[in-house]
Amino acid sequence: MHCYVTVGPEWLAILAALQGDSESEAVAQELQDRYVTIYRNALAPFSSLPPRELQRRCVAIIGAAEALGRELFRGRLDEPAAATTLASLIVAWLS
């Protein structure tokens, strides 16, 4: 969540800009794929999930992180609450 706070509300504009055309969407997808790989590799030692299931859950975790980031920028929750929420989701999904 700290990354979202560090980038600031511009992050939402960056995401929107990447959805403007097929080339930009390809870049956005590549970024998401990289984040999923980072999360999957970091979480794999702590999970007994089959690799494909862990991959899917990492996609969902990133989606949840993005949604929580939007809530941060809208002032609907603070960084500690967003981080706690995301952490609880990750722990629950790896159990």
Rank of each mutant, 00 (worst) to 15 (best):
M1L: 09
H2L: 10
Y4P: 06
T6I: 08
V7P: 08
P9N: 08
E10C: 13
E10S: 11
L15G: 10
L15S: 11
Q19G: 15
G20Q: 14
G20E: 14
D21G: 11
S24M: 11
A26D: 05
A28S: 13
Q29S: 04
E30Q: 11
E30M: 07
E30W: 12
L31C: 13
Q32C: 12
R34P: 01
R34S: 15
R34V: 01
Y35A: 04
V36M: 08
N41C: 06
N41P: 03
L43G: 07
P45G: 10
R52Y: 01
R52L: 13
L54G: 01
L54T: 01
Q55N: 13
R57T: 00
V59L: 15
V59W: 15
A60R: 08
A60H: 09
I62F: 06
I62M: 09
A64C: 11
A64D: 07
A65M: 11
A65S: 13
G69A: 15
R70T: 04
R70P: 05
L72C: 00
F73H: 10
R74A: 08
R76V: 01
L77R: 12
L77M: 11
D78P: 03
D78Q: 05
D78R: 08
P80D: 00
P80A: 06
A81H: 09
A82C: 06
A83Q: 02
A83E: 02
T84N: 07
T84E: 12
L86R: 04
L86D: 01
L86G: 05
L86N: 04
I90D: 03
I90C: 05
A92V: 04
W93R: 03
S95L: 09
S95T: 12
